[in-house]
């Protein structure tokens, strides 16, 4: 790390230093990525500390204060039970963030590993993994997620599983392609020659090499995962009231939109949108750093 801090490395700059230098260049050239990163830090902060720093208890109702528009005491107004919308929006960050992180981690484990194995071993492994991916792709993804949650049971855990399953083909395909092109690469041959088993090569040589691309993919799908989860809870799946979650808060406020109490649905929807936007920008920025050829 100390090497990376030195300004002029010349031709001897290590891989890490070069990456950091490139990252600094990208962020310098594209302030949007820097902004997205700052926003990301804020979201993580809200997810970690949210419930402890909010001004009101997100679950405490106060019917005397029901349906009040935004004011100095209640920045985002209050909902039909008099709960503070601002506190609920901040507290909801944790649940939404957890859903996104866990589903992305799960699909990385399932899709990433299956895809790498398919690309590296080929043959039957490839045929089975590709067939599974094709079958999932034959469904409209949100509809399949609905069906999975309905079948497995209406819980947050199953929302995470469903979101992971519908993203499976994307991860499997990318990992497969990346592993396939590295199948007979020099470093793989060398590892083979020095007596490593195939599975060992897969895990210690191929997998670390495709990690950067997979990480970009993970940050690109984070936004989709949150949207998917919020959509499912908007139609009444997964998260149950009175728990605070952005999708269900929008659903609760939807009925009041036609009578003019816009703030109940507006703020959670806005924050949801900003979070997704942030993840998408961050994903694009990360891709620019990791994979400069695919810049658009």
């Amino acid at each position: 790390m100390s090497e990376a801090a030195l300004p002029k490395q010349g031709v001897h700059s290590s891989g890490l230093a070069a990456t950091l230098k490139h990252a600094r260049y990208i962020i310098g050239e594209n302030p949007v990525t820097g902004f997205a990163f700052a926003l990301f830090v804020l979201i993580v902060f809200a997810a970690l500390l949210g419930p402890h720093i909010v001004p009101y208890d997100p679950l405490a109702s106060n019917t005397a204060m029901a349906l009040k528009p935004p004011s100095r005491a209640h920045w985002f107004g209050t909902d039909q039970l008099g709960r503070d919308v601002f506190s609920r929006v901040i507290a909801a960050t944790r649940l939404d963030f957890i859903i996104a992180v866990f589903s992305v981690a799960l699909v990385f484990l399932m899709g990433g590993l299956a895809g790498v194995a398919a690309g590296f071993f080929g043959g039957w492994t490839d045929r089975i993994v590709s067939r599974i991916a094709d079958t999932i792709m034959a469904f409209p993804l949100f509809v399949l997620a609905m069906g999975i949650v309905a079948a497995l049971g209406n819980t947050v855990q199953n929302i995470i599983i469903a979101t992971a399953i519908v993203n499976f083909p994307l991860y499997a395909r990318i990992a497969r392609t990346e592993a396939n092109v590295r199948r007979e690469a020099g470093f793989v041959q060398a590892a083979r020659l020095s007596g490593n088993g195939e599975t060992r090569i897969l895990l210690t040589q191929i997998l670390p090499n495709i990690m950067p691309i997979m990480i970009v993919q993970m940050s690109l799908t984070m936004g989709y995962a949150i949207l998917n989860a919020a959509g499912l809870s908007f139609i009444g799946l997964g998260v149950r009231p009175p728990d605070a979650e952005w999708g269900i808060m929008v659903a609760e406020g939807a009925a009041f939109m036609v009578s003019g109490e816009w703030w109940i649905a507006f703020f959670p929807g806005l924050v949801l949108m900003i979070a997704v936007f942030c993840f998408n920008l961050l994903g694009d920025g990360l891709r620019d750093i990791v994979d400069p050829q695919r810049r658009t």
Partner: peptide, 17 residues
């Protein structure tokens, strides 16, 4: 960029409002 980040139910509600 904004289009892919917009939750579709949110857009709908804003339009209704």
């Amino acid at each position: 960029t904004a289009g892919v980040s917009l939750p579709v139910f949110f857009t709908g509600l804003i339009l209704v409002y």
